[in-house]
Amino acid sequence: MNVILKMFYKKIKFALLDFKYIFLAYIKYVVLNIDNDKTFEKIKNKRKMIVMQTPLHGNLGDQAIAYAEKKFLTENFNDIVYLEVSFEDVIKKAKNIKKSLRPGDIIFIHGGGNMGDMYLLEEQIRRFIVKFYKNTPIISFPQTISFSKSYTGNKELNKTKKIYLNNKNLLLIARESISFEEMKKHFGAKKVLFTPDIVLSLNEKSDTRREGILTCFRNDEEKALNGIFKKELINQLKKKYNKVSISDTVINKKITNDNREKELNKIWNEIKGSEVVITDRLHGMIFCAITNTPCIVFKNFNHKIICSYNDWLKDNTFINFIDTHDIKDTKQIISIVEDIRNNQNFKESGSQEKFHPLINYVENVKVN
């Protein structure tokens, strides 16, 4: 009973925080209209690609998505003005952005794994964008959709369906096959494309001396690995290898467009300097893919890792996927680490061509 009460209290707490954010943002937008930024007014006659809902928090997976989104747009479409609107500024800047829009402009929504009821505030802001800019082409960068089967999950899915289906200018992109099928089922096949996570459009490979083992484990709601197992595995690794580093793709730091690349290079250099990375994070696996780093990746609580691996990365022989149900003991993992260290003849499979459908779609957006 105590566990149920704690879960209920947690849901109420987050619901109140969500309401507080939406309410304050609404006051700023409707009543006060506090936004002295003249950026959009100055470029209203230029063609714009605006990425909205980018993060300021320290999740380096989300930050890598924002970095890749910017690079993807600026490198593939050099006749445009690129602009970024952080999650916190979406509602605040809405009026000024809308006034600046012209034919040919495109609004992009930050990609990731938050289309669902687990990160509900993210979904609520995405709904606002889809509803408020319904006369402008909107493209949601590659996402995982994951609404729970609970009463709340079904209720929130229906809210999302109502808003998304009412926007004829919306394109969704699924980053793995289960999300692709789910999105087609709920929103219609014409509204959905299928590409990898946008971070897989990056190439961060370099010749770097590699030494030791790096672990990168999560400690949140998405974890599937047993905490005791992780602790025992790290202890065994430290007994066998001289250098074992413990890292994470989440840091306690505010990250903006100004310091994003610097912080990403820190984690990428850590990964590139390791012989083997052991992780249960999707972007831990993806960072290994874009740096050509041997990797052992464990399944997480939902489908995003296993599907991303099977859809896009299984032909990269330096990435080893392990279902948590198949783990016998830590010795099994140590044995795989040894096999990887003794075999450096890896096969690599590129992902850049998988983004051609998105490039083609953007190129066909009418400018006049």
Score class of each variant (00 low, 15 high):
M7D: 12
K10A: 11
K11Q: 13
K11L: 08
K11W: 13
K13D: 14
L16F: 08
L17K: 14
D18Q: 12
K20F: 07
L24D: 14
L24T: 11
K28I: 08
V30N: 10
D35T: 06
N36Q: 14
D37G: 06
T39A: 13
T39C: 09
M49E: 08
L56A: 09
H57A: 08
L60I: 05
G61N: 03
Q63K: 07
I65S: 03
K70A: 02
K71L: 10
K71Q: 13
L73P: 00
E75Y: 11
N78A: 07
N78I: 13
V85F: 06
F87C: 13
V90I: 15
K92C: 12
K92T: 09
N96A: 13
I97W: 05
K99E: 15
S100H: 10
F108T: 02
G111V: 01
G112Y: 03
N114I: 11
D117G: 08
M118G: 05
Y119I: 05
E122H: 11
E123A: 10
F128L: 10
I129S: 03
K131T: 06
F132A: 03
F132W: 07
Y133P: 03
Y133L: 06
T136A: 11
T136L: 04
I139M: 11
I139V: 13
F141V: 03
P142E: 07
G153C: 15
E156T: 14
T160K: 06
Y164F: 15
Y164P: 02
N166Q: 15
L170Q: 06
I173S: 00
R175K: 15
F180R: 05
E182V: 12
K190Q: 15
D197R: 00
L202Y: 00
E204A: 07
S206V: 12
E211S: 11
L214H: 08
C216R: 02
F217I: 02
F217S: 03
K223G: 07
K223A: 05
I228Q: 05
L233V: 06
I234H: 04
L237M: 09
K238M: 14
K239D: 04
K240G: 10
Y241Q: 12
V244H: 07
S245M: 10
D258Y: 14
D258P: 00
K262F: 09
N265A: 08
I271N: 00
K272L: 13
V276S: 02
V277S: 01
T279E: 00
T279D: 01
T279K: 00
H283N: 01
G284A: 14
I290E: 01
F301P: 03
H303V: 06
S308P: 06
L313I: 08
D315F: 08
N316R: 00
I319A: 00
D323W: 00
H325C: 14
Q332I: 03
I334Y: 03
S335H: 13
I336M: 13
V337N: 01
I340R: 01
S349M: 13
K354P: 02
P357C: 15
L358I: 13
E363T: 07
K366H: 10
